[in-house]
Nucleic acid binder design. Structure first.
Lengths: 143, 143
DNA sequence: GTTAGTGCAAACCTTTTGCACCAGG
DNA sequence: CCTGGTGCAAAAGGTTTGCACTAAC
């Protein structure tokens, strides 16, 4: 069966993008990644894996997917990185050492609302970024 | 009296940077800004105000001040922006419309610690970023 | 066949760097 | 003097764009 392929196809359709070969390959590559990827790295991966893609296609696809809300965007060392995102309210914990991003769902839904109210903000995007060092990296640094 | 000048001088010395004319001017310009400024904008401001400065000096000064912890760094539309920062634990609320950044001190010190613990992170930098729309912008958008 | 997608190369923009000059102690 | 700061111009990324070609319905 071709469920993986079908799934990316469905995702693209749901986003209102025609499911072309390149787009599916980009989405599949993203699907395998635990942490945000830069356009160039993705380009190299797809090219080496025997799928020639133009840089512009990579950029255009990533931009389109992000605009549709399928990807989260992170900036790391002056380079934009993208990662598949879960829907719904959650926070992002970003490791500044290895770049890992953990999506954490907080049970205490009221916290963000309270902060926003106190600061006179509409915190419409719950994708709050918390920066630090992930557990594995922290333990590696201590040793 | 020249207290303003003295103050930037003191800030620079405290940061371990010799208080040159250019650096003081950069710091003073930042002091007048409620929201993060990009290097180019700062360059234009200083130049128009009759103080010729090289772009490289602006960049080098901003980088140095940020490295010393005197400035917070934000990325907006692919351009790095800098703002004088308060010391101590606080969150940043960033308006995606006007770029305003509000520093909010939360009384509930435990929240961040709890999130970090649950996600196995060391949230060493309390300068968490919350994105949204500030009150004035939100009201402007509704009208 | 018509419309959307793609590749290439050039352009763009922000930021960094090399090097000669300058300033301040 | 001598060291660090500065300016200029060039280079270095990363990203976008114009245009001709291709592919999919």
């Amino acid at each position: 069966m071709t469920s993986a392929l079908d799934e990316t196809t469905a995702q693209l359709r749901a986003a209102g993008l025609s499911p072309t070969r390149r787009r599916r390959l980009v989405l599949e590559a993203l699907d395998r990644r635990p942490r945000p990827v830069g356009a160039h790295e993705l380009y190299v991966e797809l090219t080496q894996q025997g799928t020639p893609v133009g840089m512009s296609t990579v950029y255009r696809t990533l931009t389109a997917l992000a605009a549709k809300g399928l990807l989260h965007v992170f900036v790391r060392d002056g380079e934009t990185h993208y990662r598949l995102c879960a829907a719904g309210r959650h926070y992002h914990l970003v490791c500044r050492r290895c770049g890992l991003v953990v999506e954490h769902v907080d049970e205490d839904e009221g916290w963000l609302k309270r902060i926003a109210r106190e600061a006179d903000f509409e915190a419409d995007s719950p994708e709050t970024e918390i920066h630090g060092v992930c557990g594995p990296c922290h333990r590696a640094l201590k040793s």
